[in-house]
Amino acid sequence: MENKQIVKWNIEQSKKEIQKNLLKDNLIIFFTGILEDSKVYRNPNFYGRLKEMYGLLFPYSDKENTKEIFKELKNSDLNSREGLILDSKEKDYLSRFLKSLDENCRLKNKEKLKEFERILEDLVKKYLSHSHKDIEPYIIGKLISSVGGINNLYRMPSSTIQLIGAEKAMFRHIAKKRPCPKYGLIYYSDKIKQSKNKGKTARQLANKLAISIRQDYFQNFAR
């Protein structure tokens, strides 16, 4: 075969394979990011988050200016050919978010945040139905986004899941022999807050999560 044909065949083939590997957990990461931003800052803009989303929906476009991207997303119908393909419900979620923004890409009304929490809960119920019974949707979204995707999370042992978010204390323990941390991001769930023996419940919760995340991954995400 000639060189040009080899290049063409490989570009087409890898575009197909990439599209299969863009998973729906990116939507969960997107909505947890919005909730997280609005908890940390007083009135943030969402140009950066929307650019990430645009990169998933239309991966091979050359646009880089964030304001142009925001305008184009508002007018488009969110149908992508080469990127992440959304259902009619998920399109509705995204378009509802886009309508709630003003000209400077900030939220018009802060009470809309409750609506996004409900959207996140729906998404987690649909795609992570087993682990939804163990832990709150916002915390599981944080766990996935801090690791970088469910692809990485399902391979982890339960002891690692227990300590996600407490890496600094963990390495201090290894290097200087300070006391070992008992919990990371998991700490903010209600089960641990209410219990008296917090280290024990953190271990039990992490054990259950490790099983249920694997169930969810092989039901909905693996191909």
């Binding site: 060189n3 290049v7 490989n10 570009i11 083939q13 890898s14 990439i18 991966p59 050359d62």
Partner: peptide
């Protein structure tokens, strides 16, 4: 990784002798 491979494919479309393989 898909996020990195997207940029690689973009680069390969501009140049002639790069062959991106997603695997």
């Amino acid at each position: 990784s898909p996020q990195m491979a997207i940029r690689l494919v973009k680069l390969a479309e501009k140049k002639e002798n790069i062959v991106p393989i997603f695997s």
